[in-house]
Amino acid sequence: MPLLRPALPYLVSALLWALLTGIANLVWGPALAPSPLAISRALASLLFSGELLRELWLTVYRGLAGVLLANVAGALLGLAAGLAPFVLKVTAPLVAGLQSCPPIVWIALVLVWAGVGDFVPVATVFAATFPFVFSNVAQGTLGLSPRLLAMGRLYNVPRLRVLRRFVLPGILPYYLAGLSTVLATGWKAAAVAEFLGSPDGAGARIYWSYSRLNMEELNAWALALIVLGLSLEAFLITPLRKKAASLASRGRA
């Protein structure tokens, strides 16, 4: 039974989900709370028609595109700001404000500016994740020892070597920690943006199921998104966090 041990928590959780949905089905009836079997059938039909993967991929793709753009802009500007502490100090409240700004604000603004479409989720994810990358990279840059920079100047170490050997490795753990956070939030922001302002993607499909009161499909999409979230967490975000933590403790044996 070596396979059962790691699978057991998932099995128990799935059974608990089936039990709770089953009870809800008995209490409220199939129109409001479809049975676990009906939900599974809806999920299977979405899967076999190819819709499920296509729409999920759209959501993930938009989330990643926004995260990627936010990473490029956030890393470059964060590096520049970290090297000029004064700039960082005077923009700190703005960055903190942007960080605590809920994505719904961006969605509304982008809907007004650009109308419905692909651009809404990508721009929303960008706006929601940029401040995190920016402030993490800026903090990492600020944390670099000025004495070690002075040491490099004293020995005329070439700029490129200072960047490759000192600055970038010094920032890397902060950057990876930020990246794991924005990957976790990015695709969720994309799904919300799709719900409100896009004709396709998993978020949009939840909107359609909701507006047509198709509860089987609504539950199936919810289930699919949960599985997607768990997979991203297990295969991407957790390994990134571990990498960031091991890099941060490097040289502090």
Binding site: N156, V157, R161, F166, G170, L247, R250, R252
Partner: peptide
């Protein structure tokens, strides 16, 4: 030109001893 010993060592923590020395050698 000056070779300097910092009171607090000023070594780069994520470079090995070898790499710390290589860091200051001219290209």
């Amino acid at each position: 030109p000056v070779g300097f010993l910092f009171q607090d060592d000023a070594l780069i923590p994520w470079l090995t001893a070898y790499q710390n020395l290589a860091y200051v050698l001219p290209p």
